[in-house]
Computed example of a mutant assay.
Amino acid sequence: MQNLVEVDKRAAVPKRESTARSKLAFIRKNYFLYVLLAPALILTLIFKYVPMYGAIIAFKDFSPMKGIMGSDWVGFKYFEKFITAPNFEVLLINTLKLSLYGLILGFPVPIILALMLNQLRKSAVKKNVQLVLYAPNFISVVVIVGMLFVFLSPTGPINHLITSITGQPVMFMTEPEYFRWVYILSGIWQGAGWASIIYVAALANVDPELHNAASLDGANLLQRIRHIDLPTIKPIMAIVFILAAGGIMSIGFEKAYLMQTSLNLPTSEILPTYVYKIGLQSGNYAYSAAVGLFNSVINVVLLITVNFIVKRLNEGEGLY
């Protein structure tokens, strides 16, 4: 028995060597592809992995004078402080609501736009429509918020129309109940067109003969979309949904912070704006790092959970 095991081990060594040689040969043959990939890998390492070292301050009583390693270790002190804080529940609920509503309302819109664009047969018309849909993505967030304050102000054009009907304006930018809808709908308007690009590219690979054959068999437009177009983009939809669900807690603070007023704080104060205020404005770096790390851990858990669920429902197709 021992001799057989030794023979198996000796046989495995040449196999490993041949596999290693084949990989090296592949790298030498396609070295230019790795050269093209190198800048992205370097940037990812520098801006994503190296800063992870700074997450240590979440577990320390950080002092800029002592440095990261010289500061006293306090363990989970700041995590406990945040979880037991009076505003913890409000911050968590506001962040989850803003993200979940945005995901539920915003996820189908790029798919619908892509399916509609795919039905346009005139190339010139299609390009002009795409230009109009993609343009808002290139507008600065600061400009978008400025436009919102102008259009939704009590004397703005939208309230002018509302006042002519109801007799009184609606305080969109100061009433807490309107903050989420303004934030989400403006975000959909800005990003849905650009997000539809990936679906438009996938639909471009659909063989037109499939649609022609389905039309000859009597299938109408909705049936062709359901049985031809949607199955084509289904894997992409799964990946995009997993990534979106995994980033539920990763709302950029810029737009929410710019839209904040003293009157809409009950719904506009979210985790990213809270981290910005206590970290950069108040200088409490350790506490803000703990809140940010708490936020990241929730994202990772959501990503793994959603990927597992989608793989079970999608016949094994997931992000990984």
Rank of each mutant, 00 (worst) to 15 (best):
I162C: 02
R180T: 05
P136N: 09
L91D: 06
G156P: 05
A195N: 15
T174D: 10
V142G: 00
V74K: 08
Q168H: 12
I57K: 09
F179K: 05
G67R: 05
P64F: 14
M52F: 06
K126Y: 02
E80P: 00
T84I: 05
G54V: 09
S99H: 03
W181T: 11
T95P: 05
I57Y: 11
A195L: 07
L91V: 06
N87M: 15
S63P: 07
I158N: 01
V90R: 15
F172M: 06
N128I: 12
L91G: 07
Y101Q: 01
G187R: 09
S186G: 10
L185R: 03
S123N: 05
L161K: 02
L115V: 15
F79H: 10
V109M: 08
K126I: 09
S164T: 11
D72L: 06
T163S: 12
L131K: 07
V143S: 02
P86R: 12
F79P: 06
M52L: 15
L105R: 00
E177M: 06
T155F: 02
P110C: 14
M116Q: 04
V182F: 03
Q190G: 05
S164L: 12
I198Q: 12
M173W: 01
T174R: 01
G75H: 06
S71P: 09
G146C: 04
G54E: 10
V74I: 15
E175A: 09
V143E: 00
L92C: 04
S186F: 05
V143D: 01
